[in-house]
Design a protein around this nucleic acid. Structure first.
Lengths: 186, 186
DNA sequence: TATGGTCTAGACTGATTGGTCCAATAATGA
DNA sequence: TCATTATTGGACCAATCAGTCTAGACCATA
């Protein structure tokens, strides 16, 4: 599955995703990345002329693509929309438990703490919502657009909750939060 | 209302809250804080012997206290629990629109990106949930404990959403998200 | 007015930062 | 084979980092 001999450029991006997602842009040094990627400085500035900022942008886009993959693999085999949502949360909870950098939501560490301008980060997050909405349409969910927005707002909150509690449970149980005992009076 | 002649120590903490909450611990330099607080280096290390980390801890605790204040002022005059929740979101939305550092949720920038250990950050967030739950009990909300948890998980997600969209609307409309068209099958 | 503790002021330091540069090497195509 | 380009390796640099140190200002109380 994994590339047996990844190129230096790929190792750099991969290390960038791992470290930036875990510690944020300002919490990660170029030296950290070079050590993790086993690459010399010259290679970084050859492949990413603008250096750390360039790499962080590439890492953010790769992380976004990975999330689109997770969305697809969660909903594709699902029988209904809510079942897909449960599958997605379970997948993210497993990643949370297995890999340190998945303890942080990429939106926080990759999109908001780095060289991406706000609009670019918004576009990446929107692509996740769009993908989720498309799955909602395909699976005849009740209100695909608003539900996709609700799912991601709630999911990001639960992810933060899970991180500060050091426990994947809030992430795993996120679907339970999509209803509430109390309804706001219109 | 505001102290007319705040002490150097108070100016340092206040600048710490502002800058750390806006840019995070690693994105803020000691020099930035000293400039904002109009204080010399000697004063910082006199009042906070461990320097930046000490100040960040104090800032996180102050920010947490400010949030407890906001919770109290939102729910105290409310007639019912959901009304108080709406008031709280409106207050946070106004702050979001008026002051740059309120664009970021303190949980993200103060509790998770800094010298606080995870457990201490969890304790601070828990104090917000406890305060909200107490208001739920007082106002006879339907399920104070679980609703307080739901409110904060959803609120943090909406806050992140608002930040990346550059618009307070998701924060202001958060109460609408507490119900969802679709209910997960038990 | 003396005295002693608190606080301010900022020069200074060593480590680390992100980034530049160029020689050496590997890969590519004529 | 040779020439050209792509890539690597790492020494080097200026800027910035957090933190130390000490001289003196300030402010109580005696």
């Amino acid at each position: 599955m994994a590339d047996p001999t990844p190129s230096t450029r790929d190792r750099l991006i991969h290390s960038g995703v791992t470290l930036f997602q875990e510690r944020g842009f300002h919490g990660t040094s170029v030296a950290d990345i070079l050590t993790a990627a086993q690459a010399p400085k010259g290679s970084l500035y050859h492949h990413f002329p603008a250096g750390k900022a360039d790499l962080a942008r590439a890492a953010a886009h790769l992380a976004s693509d990975l999330m689109l993959d997770i969305i697809a693999r969660a909903y594709d085999p699902a029988e209904d929309f809510s079942g897909g949502t449960v599958r997605m949360c379970e997948k993210l909870a497993r990643l949370f438990e297995r890999q340190a950098h998945w303890r942080a939501c990429p939106v926080q560490t990759l999109f908001l703490d780095g060289p991406l301008d706000r609009a670019e980060g918004e576009r990446l997050l929107q692509s996740w919502i769009d993908a989720t909405q498309a799955q909602g349409l395909r699976l005849h969910g009740p209100a695909p657009l608003t539900d996709a927005q609700r799912i991601w707002a709630t999911l990001i909150g639960c992810w933060t909750f899970a991180r500060i509690r050091g426990d994947a449970a809030p992430l795993r149980n996120m679907p339970d939060l999509l209803t509430l005992g109390e309804t706001r009076s219109a």
